[in-house]
Computed example of a mutant assay.
Amino acid sequence: MTSRSSWNTRNSDVAWAKFDPIAYVDHNYRCIQEDDAEILRIVRDHFADHFRTTDTTGPVSGIDVGSGPNLYPALAMLPWCEEITLLEYSPANVRYLEGQVMSYDANWDQFWDVLREHEAYRSLGMGPRDRFCRAVEVKEGDLFDLARHEGR
């Protein structure tokens, strides 16, 4: 059971600098779990359907708020987003993400494999690593500061 005092813990109160993103990735993302594969299928199919039926004018921007050391939300946005921002509060996670931009680790290929079961991902026009490198920007930031970007 969660104690009542922990409900009042703010994100900024957590010692995120001590978070170990490598251990987290090793535990959660070295081998794809079926629940992650199912999430990817749902998101993949939703995006493909949405962008097939929605008339978009101009480039599309994506953002993953509170990315953590997880690349698969950004991978899911690749076919449609010219730019993708990974907004992360933890300095340790920011360093991890920045280290993945130029060429992400091989364990993320299994997540891409689930996405590329759909034609929209297979017809990207370039390899996912190249597209990821061109589209993704990592920014250190706080979800609660996003209000100042209202309307964007």
Rank of each mutant, 00 (worst) to 15 (best):
S3N: 14
R4M: 12
R4V: 14
S6Y: 14
N8W: 06
N8P: 04
T9A: 12
R10S: 12
V14N: 09
A15Q: 08
F19A: 10
A23E: 09
D26N: 13
H27L: 13
Y29D: 03
I32W: 01
I32H: 03
D36K: 10
A37F: 03
A37W: 07
E38W: 12
I39N: 03
R41L: 10
V43Y: 06
F47Y: 09
V65Q: 05
S67K: 02
G68W: 02
P69C: 09
L71E: 00
Y72D: 03
Y72A: 03
A74E: 01
A76L: 02
M77I: 06
P79F: 00
E83D: 05
I84N: 01
T85Q: 10
L86F: 00
L87F: 07
Y89F: 09
S90Y: 01
P91T: 06
A92P: 04
L97A: 07
G99K: 02
G99T: 05
M102T: 15
S103E: 13
D105F: 13
D109N: 00
Q110L: 08
D113I: 12
L115K: 00
R116N: 13
E119A: 05
S123Y: 00
G127D: 13
R129G: 05
D130H: 08
R131I: 05
A135E: 05
K139M: 07
K139D: 07
L143C: 12
L143T: 11
F144A: 07
F144V: 12
D145F: 11
L146M: 14
A147P: 09
G151H: 14
